[in-house]
Design a protein around this nucleic acid. Structure first.
Lengths: 214, 214
DNA sequence: GATGTTGGTGAGCGTCACTATCCGATGCCC
DNA sequence: GGGCATCGGATAGTGACGCTCACCAACATC
């Protein structure tokens, strides 16, 4: 198929597709001659993936490029490939290590990992962006003076652990190694907005149950 | 305290505070004379809240203004106030009703709410942004050809329902009505990045447990 | 009374995700 | 094979966003 058809079938304008090609998010089509390039189903699929990451997952274009680069890097093993892809995801700005709330949050997060017995995650605290994001989020909440107890944090973390187990169970149903990696990355990127929407909807539901609409 | 001190205690530059004042995110200080305004602890608290929403919650400035406007509107009842604040949160672009995947996702999401017996949420399907976001997310996943079964969606939703129940339990511990509303909004905005970070960390933990680091 | 700081204002900056326009080469219909 | 639409590619521009800078007259402080 040609650019125009790729555009029509994906719902993405030709101008935008050209932009993605320029940015290296999409492999160039097979060049038939100077004014014609041929795209296939794989291009369409990749384009949909890119759109989903950008629009649903709200990833910056540059990040999408990095993530895809890692996903496509067949020289790496699965865990490393997945890890590399996940770590390219956009990060909250680096925590300020001088801030007292940040230091307290680091301590608290460490205790949390101990209590959960997430020993592998504990090993990653110096390098994992997720860990840093968690510290920043906890620090922000504490800075505002909220005094949730530790049990609440633990409960949230256990819920998310169960969600992660569901993700990985599904990943294991994928037949090929390449699909497993892609699915895992997608799980990290697309499941998140879905969970967020479900969370808000559940808040609305539960709030209405408890207090009615008034 | 004056602008410079507010800046120092919050870690936000005076230029940025001035910008927030201009945008109406912060109430003006008590004007002492033409060149001096006096700010209090409430301003500091509000400023930290604004920063947390923008940096941790990634809300656009205009959205923060709307959300705070609803939070401050004492003429409304709690549920309505909370709902108004939540619905001002940034939304994924409107789903395209002509798209077959969107229509299928609407159907599937409706069935999901039925199966969950979220009857209140079901009433909100025409107006709730969370519902629309959920539809868009489900459509994106389906468009990419993933065939998760309904049970998986149900499991995710039940987990998020439990998270929402935890949020609201905590909200109920707040003494005053105003604090309850603020806490609820904050729960929707700040708990989310925390859950996201926990989710990714849990994925890393679980992945390492199952497959090691290799 | 000299110096430096205050809060307010308007304009400017860098980033980002596109988008509009132009180009010459080519496909395609008659 | 003439004429016109369409092709892919390149460059420059757009509008939104979140600040940030420079400047100002009015004031506090020494």
């Amino acid at each position: 198929m040609r650019l125009a058809e790729l555009s029509e079938r994906s719902g993405v304008s030709t101008a935008t597709i050209k932009y993605y090609l320029r940015e290296g998010l999409l492999a160039p089509g097979r060049q038939v001659n100077t004014t014609t390039a041929e795209y296939d189903e794989e291009h369409l699929r990749r384009l949909r993936l890119v759109r989903a990451m950008i629009q649903v997952g709200r990833l910056p274009v540059a990040t999408v490029k990095q993530v895809l680069g890692h996903v496509d890097d067949e020289s790496l093993g699965r865990t490393v490939r997945l890890g590399a892809a996940l770590w390219a995801l956009p990060q909250i700005p680096e925590p300020d290590a001088d801030d007292e709330f940040v230091r307290a949050a680091q301590r608290e997060t460490g205790e949390l990992l101990d209590a959960l017995e997430w020993s592998n995650a504990k090993l990653l605290t110096t390098i994992s962006p997720s860990y840093r994001s968690l510290v920043v989020a906890v620090a922000a909440v504490r800075r505002l003076g909220y005094d949730w107890d530790f049990e609440l944090l633990l409960s949230y973390a256990r819920l998310m652990h169960r969600a992660a187990a569901l993700d990985l169970d599904f990943v294991e149903t994928r037949p090929s190694e390449a699909e497993k990696v892609e699915t895992a990355v997608l799980g990290a990127i697309l499941v998140q907005p879905m969970l967020q929407a479900m969370h808000r909807l559940a808040q609305e539901e539960e709030s209405a149950r408890r207090y009615g609409f008034e």
